[in-house]
Simulated assay, not measured.
Amino acid sequence: MENGSHPFYFNLTAFGNIGYYRYPAFIFCFLLYSVIVFANVIIILVISREKSLHQPMYILILCLCINSLYGSAGFFPRFLIDLLSDTHAISLPACFTQIFFIYSYATFELTMMSAIAYDRYVAVCHPLHYHNKMTANKVITIVAAAYIYPVCVLSPSACLSFTTPLCGNNIPKVFCANWLVLKLSCVTTFINNVVGLFLSGTIFAPLLFVAYTYVRILLICRKGTSESRLKVLQSCLPHIVTFANFAVSMFCDVVLSRFNIEEFSPFAAIVISLEFVVIPPIVNPLMYGIKLQEIKKNILKCYFKK
């Protein structure tokens, strides 16, 4: 490959650390992917079929489950194929497509969690105005903005990365990551870094918004009765758990991308990188299906009538 050119493919070198464990890993990950698809599809079908669940909070949860299927589809099929393959090369277009899938999944997860946090904030702090503020048109606008926002945020960074000349093709991970691709650059990535930091600020802004809304909710709960506090906690706990889980997963992925953890423990590096794309899609439907009584009740009614 000539200096300053784009490679035709990238090597995902982290698969070499799996070695003889690839067959047990394939079986485990295939079962895990099946559980993710099954759990999210159940939540989607229940919310879609039950008219009593056609409310803003449940519609937003449905969108969150759809995003889990979207993110999993952008990662698992390719990952499962690579586990059984002797070569772990991915073409340039496939690599950048995977980057867009995974990063847009992560950004939409954040924006949708912000929408759910806003919904809970209005329900708890302004209950009398809830139906006026969370109308059907308002929910449609929120969902549309949540879909459009990741595209607008990620497109500039993707264009810069795609046009950056590269002098290598080894990516020390089990999937393509934008920061690791930029590390292969033949030229300075100052502009990419500035744009990346700015976009990271806009991406992580929803985290601050979610944290702010739940702090406000907790402050309001302190003034209520024990019965009202319990009711609010039951309603908000699944959202708080899924938000905390995703925030930790995002933090682990950022740490893994910025520091060479694979030099100290290759296996730990693989586990941490998988947490980002595996744990949230499986935790979200389980938390909502078990903890939210209306969803749990309708799951039992639809699938366990006998």
Rank of each mutant, 00 (worst) to 15 (best):
C29I: 08
S68H: 10
L80Y: 13
P24A: 06
Y20T: 12
L45Y: 02
I36K: 05
I27P: 02
G19P: 13
I99S: 00
S48C: 12
D86E: 06
N67D: 15
V37L: 09
P93S: 01
Y58M: 04
I18Y: 06
Y20K: 11
G74A: 04
F15K: 07
E50Q: 09
D82W: 08
L60D: 11
I61N: 01
N67T: 13
S34P: 00
D82F: 12
E50G: 06
V35H: 12
Y70S: 11
Y20E: 08
G74C: 07
Y33Q: 01
I90V: 15
I47K: 00
L60A: 08
F75E: 14
Q98K: 02
E50M: 07
N67V: 15
V35F: 08
L60S: 04
Q98A: 00
I59W: 13
I47G: 01
S91Y: 04
G74N: 02
F79Q: 09
I81R: 12
A14H: 14
L92H: 10
D82G: 02
Y23Q: 10
F75A: 10
R22K: 12
D82N: 14
R49P: 06
T87F: 12
I66R: 06
A73P: 03
I59L: 13
L69R: 11
L69G: 12
L31K: 00
I81W: 14
I81E: 07
R78Q: 08
G19E: 06
G19T: 09
P56Q: 08
L69S: 11
V46S: 06
G19D: 09
V37Y: 02
L62K: 05
A39S: 06
F28D: 05
I59Y: 06
G16R: 10
F75I: 11
V46W: 00
S48A: 08
I59A: 00
Y23G: 06
S72P: 13
S52T: 13
G74S: 07
F76V: 15
S85N: 08
K51L: 13
F30P: 05
L31R: 08
F79Y: 09
P93M: 03
F38G: 04
K51S: 15
I61P: 04
L53H: 03
S68Y: 04
A39K: 01
V37E: 00
L92C: 14
S91V: 06
I61F: 09
I42N: 07
A39N: 01
F76R: 14
I27G: 04
Y33R: 02
I18S: 15
Q98E: 01
V35L: 08
F15T: 09
L31D: 04
A39F: 08
S91A: 03
L64K: 15
D82L: 14
F26A: 11
F96H: 03
Y23C: 07
R78V: 00
V41H: 02
I43S: 07
C29H: 06
Y23D: 12
L69T: 11
I99M: 06
I44A: 00
I99L: 02
P56F: 11
F79H: 12
L64S: 15
S34N: 05
